[in-house]
């Protein structure tokens, strides 16, 4: 069973995403900001990270920068799940978020669960 780390400061979102992913047979671990997300990622080496952007203490973008510069975590794919900006417009395809010279897939909030699931499936299988 694949493990997914969900990082979001809103408990309701964490609960809902966890619920949805577990219903689709993923194991889910959670964190409530960038700092905690990095710790969880380093400790548990999840197969994928679902990352919010705007969070207190450390933003999702900052956290991804750190994760991508750490040899232990740099291979872990990241999908942003964010309410920030229109770069993540809910179109036919997932949007993109630009962090440190690289594009990452991004799904805008409010999200369609089938988009989140298909993006995850594309990156780690199920």
């Amino acid at each position: 069973m694949k493990t997914i780390l969900v990082v979001d400061d809103k408990a309701d979102i964490v609960e809902l995403v966890k619920n949805r992913l577990e219903a689709n047979h993923y194991k889910v671990i959670v964190a409530s900001d960038g700092n905690e997300g990095i710790k969880q990622a380093q400790q548990h080496r999840p197969d994928l990270i679902v990352m919010d952007i705007m969070m207190p203490n450390m933003s999702g973008g900052e956290a991804v920068k750190v994760l991508k510069s750490d040899a232990a975590t740099q291979h872990i794919p990241v999908v942003f799940l964010t309410a920030v900006g229109s770069s993540v417009r809910e179109g036919e395809e997932p949007g993109r978020v630009y962090v440190d010279g690289k594009f990452f897939p991004a799904i805008g909030k409010p999200f369609k669960p089938e988009k989140l699931l298909s993006e995850i499936k594309k990156l780690v299988g199920n």
Partner: peptide, 16 residues
């Protein structure tokens, strides 16, 4: 951001 966050909670709750 503030509108989208509750909207996504509403949407995903209904959806589930």
């Amino acid at each position: 951001h503030e509108i989208r966050t509750p909207l996504s909670i509403i949407r995903e709750s209904i959806s589930q």
